[in-house]
Design a protein around this nucleic acid. Structure first.
Length: 259
DNA sequence: ATGACTGATGGAATCAGA
């Protein structure tokens, strides 16, 4: 079973590239972030024609997440990150697919830091810690995947010294990510590629992709129950080099699990 | 420190992204 995550940076602008990628790689589950579309503008028909059943949480202009399952309806578990009813940003969805609990997240960017946006990021992270622990305690096989907006370590940035003051790389952000790993979640890409330079984001500006000036900020974290089933993980790097690409690269895990 | 790119909104210029 293959589970992928892809920050599409606008489902409207990216529908062609998304359908091509789905057709080529046939993930069993695809988690999408940054739909940048209101609920009613999600291209449900086109995605169903491609063989995928979607659930989604939209929002005008910004954010927005979706979970697509190939040939089966995702069973929605949670809509929106629990813990703050006043939070109106569409950044979190959970669904069960083939007996695996899939959490799709788009963690706040947090810049500029310090400031209210960084405070929101850290508060969001705390709520996420709480929810992640509940899921782990349930004993179910779980994948937490999406755009974490965290550069975990120095090897995950092309020039780490340029990011030390940035919300993606500040000590608070890294510590919050590390806390997940300490709790027992497995960073699937790093686990399967301990020393490799792997990036999942390239800025549109100054030919970042051509210079391989990237960041690794999209992550798939496996619960201890699921970790032994990890067979492979990687990125669909070439997708970033096509016409009208997202600035993020699709990222995936392959699990020894019946699809 | 700034700018360059891109998408959405709204129908120009601005915000947000990372």
């Amino acid at each position: 079973m293959r589970v992928a995550t892809f920050n599409v940076n606008g489902i409207g602008a990216r529908i062609g590239a998304l359908l091509q990628w789905l057709e080529e790689t046939q993930p069993d589950v695809a988690c999408l972030q940054e739909l940048k579309a209101p609920q009613e503008k999600f291209p449900e028909a086109a995605i169903r024609e491609a063989g995928y059943c979607p659930i989604w949480l939209g929002q005008k202009s910004w954010n927005g997440v979706a979970i697509l399952a190939r040939g089966v309806e995702p069973q929605e578990v949670t809509r929106g990150l629990p813990g703050d009813p006043s939070d109106e940003q569409s950044r979190y969805l959970e669904a069960a697919v083939n007996g695996i609990l899939i959490a799709c997240l788009y963690l706040p960017n947090g810049n500029p830091a310090p400031g209210p946006k960084f405070d929101y990021k850290l508060a969001w992270f705390e709520r996420f810690h709480k929810r992640a622990q509940e899921l782990m305690d349930s004993g179910a096989p779980v994948i937490l995947c999406g755009d974490y907006n965290v550069i975990p370590t120095e090897r995950d940035a092309y020039k780490p010294e340029r990011w030390v003051e940035d919300a993606l790389f500040r000590p608070e952000s890294r510590a919050a990510y590390q806390k997940l790993l300490d709790a027992g979640w497995l960073d699937a890409l790093r686990a399967t590629h301990p020393d490799e330079v792997i990036y999942t984001f390239y800025d549109y500006m100054r030919d970042a992709y051509g210079r391989n000036a990237g960041l690794r900020i999209d992550h798939l974290l496996l619960s201890p129950e699921l970790a032994p089933q990890l067979k492979a993980a990687g990125t669909d790097h070439a997708v970033r080099g096509r016409e009208k690409p997202s600035d993020h690269v699709p990222t995936w895990v392959e699990l020894d699990w019946p699809a």
